[in-house]
């Protein structure tokens, strides 16, 4: 448990560093994502070993849904959107979300099956 907490502390530090870089350079990308890219580079270059953060990372990731709940509860201040005319805006969001999900999803699927076919052909030849 202690190790997990220390590792979460390391991840938190990287998040703070990311936020600092974001404010310093005024990049329109959240600090957490800059921190993620930074950690990814550290892992790739071998400066940080997977085991140093894996326990903490898996702990946070397995409860990622929990961490989003406070943000989703914020919808309570806008309940009027879910009744009357506001419902159309929700409808628009849902339809548009579905379009994006299927468009991106099917391109991904197509790319993967094409690649698998290519690999099979190479092996067959």
């Amino acid at each position: 448990m202690g190790i997990t907490i220390i590792q979460i502390g390391v991840l938190y530090t990287l998040y703070v560093v990311g936020s600092f870089i974001q404010q310093l350079l005024h990049i329109p990308i959240p600090g957490s994502m800059i921190g993620m890219l930074f950690l990814f580079l550290l892992l790739m270059s071998g400066i940080v070993k997977e085991e140093w953060i894996s326990r903490g990372a898996n702990m946070l990731l397995s409860h990622l849904t929990l961490l989003f709940i406070p943000a989703t509860v914020g919808v309570m201040d806008y309940v009027e959107l879910f009744s009357g005319k506001g419902i159309w805006s929700i409808f628009v969001v849902i339809v548009s979300t579905m379009i994006v999900m299927l468009f991106v999803g099917f391109i991904g699927q197509w790319a993967q099956t094409r690649e698998q076919k290519r690999v099979r052909e190479v092996k067959g030849a």
Partner: peptide
């Protein structure tokens, strides 16, 4: 109110930042 709720909720929000950073792990794997 939501504000009163966030008195406690903010602690989970604080963990969201490091959780996004943690996504580097599956990315790396």
């Amino acid at each position: 109110s939501y504000e009163q709720y966030m008195d406690g909720g903010k602690w989970l929000v604080h963990l969201l930042g490091p959780a996004v950073v943690a996504l580097a792990l599956p990315l790396y794997q």
